[in-house]
Write a protein that binds this DNA or RNA. Structure first.
Lengths: 253, 253
DNA sequence: GAGTGGTCTAGACCACCAC
DNA sequence: TGGTGGTCTAGACCACTCA
């Protein structure tokens, strides 16, 4: 890390970054280590002075890289304790990706009911958004989320089978805790970021029946594409939310 | 700013912050200046060394305060030029609060059609969320947004009349550019942050007619509460989005 | 008390922008 | 060429955690 003016690596885009600050290079190296699993989710990273020594860089530069990654949600910093790999297992990030809130009362964990889990050749559309070859297989999951006895969310989920070897209905059903935590601990796939497209749609026959609603009832359609390290898409999710007693919460800033 | 350990000001919450770092205090002072209008939207702040001198603090501390405020969207920093008060007038933040994207093609400015603008006593619910006294008056606006000739969004907007003296249908109709820019330049009210609650609903008779849809068509209901400096609510907006050719985009991280 | 991250400082140099 | 924000360094001290 002695050369400050190292080129910014591959640059396919026309507007190549002319210059990459040291802390960004450190950030890239740390992200790479995360990808390779050098530190497991929830584990502590080496301390700032250690990392500074390792990268031959001042502690301030390491700090800036760590702060940036903490801001991105990849790391969690705790004063007096250390810097840790972010995980979906923690209570504080339990609901990071579920924006559904009840109109009344506090948010509570919803019950899950697994409806289906099968392996199949990826439909064209699914293969396209997940960046799979046609012919690659995916795991398709259908499940309900219920508030008490009332079904609120109907999810269809597609995962690249290659990354989720051995994922089965039994495994899903037996698991207690958030699905993303299972993915993380059992398959080493961490969801970092997601894009959602939200629409209002009328409930179709099957969906209406599963959600215990009349056909044609308005539902929130939430299409989510989730990414792991490096912006690699690893999950497609199509959720139908019944928003009579819940709403989707968003903060703009 | 000589004393590092000044108390953190008022602390009504049970868990009072035991300690407020210098840069947070600087941040509070700068935010106060913004509130008081010391620098207009789009204007440049004094340079970092000047601010450091003014607050009797090192440049690094000023920088940390400015960086934090830039991250919050209150300021915009431009290398080689200076630090500026964020504004809704800039192209880059044009769509900061409108998350609607077309399925096909690039996002384009939508045409506006003002349907109504009147002053009235705040309905109880509106007064409650805007923190007004019962009896305070509000400006109520109803408008359409159209993509080409197709109505896509029906907005109902409520604003505290006290803050928007002189806002009229003529003024709104004559203004070219984003509504939040008008609020900012003409009334000195800057929208900093907003909370949205999103649901799927069936179009009612009036709404269906205005959006040129059959009654009962599914629509996205977006209830937005916007805040200015200091977390003060200053706008309630109830939008109905027709999501056949558009979707609401959200990024989770 | 030892170790961690958090704050604050001071100074050097770099990249960008305008004149 | 001078001024701006951006990066990097080195060192001091503070707050938090835990043994």
């Amino acid at each position: 890390m002695a050369s400050t003016s190292a080129p910014a690596g591959t640059a396919a885009a026309p507007a190549a970054p002319a210059f990459s600050p040291l802390y960004r290079q450190i950030q890239a190296l740390l992200t790479r280590s995360l990808t390779l699993g050098e530190w497991q989710p929830g584990a502590a990273l080496p301390s700032e002075p250690e990392l500074a020594l390792r990268f031959k860089v001042s502690q301030g530069t390491v700090r800036k890289a760590l702060d940036a990654m903490a801001a991105d949600g990849l790391l969690v910093r705790r004063q007096g304790k250390g810097t840790f790999v972010a995980t979906h297992a923690e209570a504080q990030v339990q609901y990071r990706f579920l924006r559904l809130m009840p109109d009344q009362g506090e948010r509570q964990a919803m019950r899950r009911r697994l409806l289906d889990c099968r392996r199949l050749r990826a439909p064209a559309e699914v293969a396209r958004v997940l960046g799979l070859d046609s012919g690659d297989s995916v795991v398709q999951i259908r499940r309900l989320l219920l508030a008490g006895e009332v079904p609120v969310v109907l999810d269809d989920i597609w995962l690249p089978a290659r990354l989720f070897k051995g994922l089965s209905a039994e495994r899903l059903d037996a698991y207690r805790g958030p699905m993303y935590r299972l993915f993380e601990t059992e398959f080493g796939v961490r969801m970092i970021r997601a894009d959602e497209k939200i629409r209002a749609v009328a409930a179709g026959g099957d969906e209406a029946a599963l959600l215990n609603l009349p056909e044609g009832a308005p539902l929130l359609l939430v299409e989510r594409l989730s990414f792991t390290y490096g912006g690699k898409p690893v999950e497609l999710r199509r959720g139908l939310y019944h928003t009579a007693a819940h709403y989707y919460r968003n903060e703009l800033s």
